[in-house]
Write a protein that binds this DNA or RNA. Structure first.
Length: 455
RNA sequence: GGCGCGGUAGCCAAGUGGUAAGGCCGAGCUCUGCAAAAGCUCUAUGCGACGGUUCGAUUCCGUCCCGCGCCUCCA
């Protein structure tokens, strides 16, 4: 079995394979803008990409996969944040980069092999822009900015079919961006942005004067530097399809004179309560928000994988208890398995679902279907190997109740004593008293634990 | 207005031209004094509506209704 993924460019499901002689699969995944804590919608994309990475590792061997995921550490949002907080840009982006890393680790996402930053590749970006200018694909404006001339690239729009829509709607597409006046054409986009007062001390020297790179060029430059001019797979969220990826194709191909990426994959958005997340709707969650409600990151990961990656997934808080329960079932089942000696192909149906355009809900369904047939013929090695592809970690939730207040501890001790004395009437009364304090006593084999009463 | 996606049980969600995976919830049962945990069983004559193609459609085609996303720097 080989991994087949939908390709946004050709709009068909195609097998992934390395295009170059060294057999290395070159994989570029558009990363986050580090100006705030990433929300679970962002993480849907990163978790999905993590599963892709794991499947690629499995298929081609970990040493034959090169995974690059960038950090956007300079743009309007990061600069605005820096100014609002009165802190240097680097300090802000370093902080949120670190937060992103710890969140990724909590979600058990494998780190990419290279994690380049936009500010770390200013030279490369300037080099590409200069090359585009030389080749007649870019032009300067009076304020010292440089724009990509979309009309110079006839294939522009092939990914998003933006041309079709423009032909039909004519002038219906309004250009709302602030720099519209400077552009020759509404579809042109910034490669280099001249320094403005709002940028403060964020600028670099360039052949066009002080300024900073446009957003799209960073991915073209970093991808080229770390993976070469032609890559095998480029991914991101659907919202990046246009204009970001469309612009990347234009820049890279006009600059390098060769195909940019053999395969494009876009994961769909996560909706919360039926709507796209937004602060104004109050339905935007970060991992910390959910942790505060008592949900572990692994439950979030499970919930994110419970929907098909190319379909909008409607996330609700109710999904998390369901995910926790499902993880418990998986863990409990795993513990009944012998270490080895089972059929190594026992879970082939799970892997087949993943290989078939990353059907994660189908894979989970296949997994539970097999589990419901009982443990016979399955061993832990095979089970773990399969679970590893999904990146699920099946450790038990931390024991709750150690922080019970003294009077609760006292009641519990009394009840335990009553039970040992087989005075069940007293024991039941004490259990009722405990419930009133908001705690539940769970009898174990050789003792008991205390948990906050659920609901 | 354009482009794209979706409407499957209380909730979430796969899937197929041949008669509906799975998870959660709920119900019953087993086992533990009780409770919890765990295990077992059950839960859509039905897949937005109406037409069409077909021996047969939830699955293909058409129309309609509803929801969602994108349309210049949002994963």
């Amino acid at each position: 079995m080989a991994l087949r993924l939908f390709d946004s460019l050709t709009r068909e499901i195609r097998e992934l394979k390395p295009s170059q002689g060294d057999g290395v699969l070159r994989f570029y995944n558009c990363g986050p803008t580090v100006y705030a804590a990433a929300h679970i919608g962002n993480f849907r994309t990163f978790v999905v990409n993590d599963v892709i990475r794991r499947l690629l590792d499995r298929q081609f061997g970990a040493s034959h996969v090169l995974h690059v995921r960038n950090l956007t550490d300079v743009d309007d949002k990061t600069i605005r944040r820096s100014r609002e907080e009165g802190r240097p840009l680097q300090e802000v982006t370093r902080h949120w980069t670190s937060k992103f890393h710890s969140d990724c680790a909590a979600l058990n996402c494998l780190p990419p092999h290279v994690e380049p930053t936009a500010t770390g590749h200013i030279e490369e970006q300037i080099g590409m822009i200069a090359a585009l200018e030389r080749r007649g694909h870019a032009y300067r404006t009076d304020d010292g900015s440089v724009y990509f001339k979309v009309s110079s690239f006839p294939e522009y729009g092939s990914l998003s079919r933006v041309k079709e829509r423009e032909l039909k709607t004519g002038s219906a597409l309004k250009t709302a961006s602030a720099d519209a006046d400077e552009k020759e054409d509404g579809s042109d986009f910034a490669l280099w942005k001249a320094h403005k007062a709002d940028d403060g001390d964020v600028f670099w020297p360039s052949p066009w004067g002080q300024g900073r790179p446009g957003w799209h060029i960073e991915c073209s430059a970093m991808s080229k530097k770390h993976l070469g001019p032609t890559i095998d797979l480029h991914t991101g969220g659907v919202d990046l399809l246009f204009p970001h990826h469309e612009n990347e194709i234009a820049q890279s191909q006009c600059c390098n004179g060769q195909l940019f990426s053999h395969h494009w994959y876009h994961s769909e958005h996560l909706l919360v309560d039926g709507k796209k997340m937004s602060k104004s709707l109050g339905n935007l969650y970060t991992l910390d928000d959910l942790a505060a409600k008592g949900f572990r990151p692994m439950a979030v990961r499970y919930a994110l994988l419970a929907g098909h990656p190319r379909k909008q997934l409607n996330f609700t808080l109710e999904a998390l208890p369901a995910a926790e329960k499902a993880l418990t079932t998986l863990r409990t089942f795993r513990d009944t398995l012998p270490a080895t000696g089972g059929d190594p192909t026992a879970l082939a149906s799970v892997i087949a679902a993943l290989d078939d355009d990353l059907n994660t809900p189908g894979a989970l369904g296949a997994l539970f279907t097999r589990i419901n047939q009982g443990p016979a013929g399955l061993d832990r090695a095979t089970f773990d190997e399969t679970i590893h592809l999904l990146g699920l970690v099946l450790t038990a939730p931390p024991a709750a109740g150690q922080d019970a207040p003294p009077h609760v501890q006292e009641l519990a001790a009394q009840r335990w004593a009553a039970k040992q004395a087989r005075d069940f009437k007293a024991a039941d009364l004490l259990r009722a008293s405990l419930l009133e304090t908001g705690w539940t006593m769970l009898d174990r084999k050789d003792g008991y634990t205390l948990e906050r009463t659920k609901r």
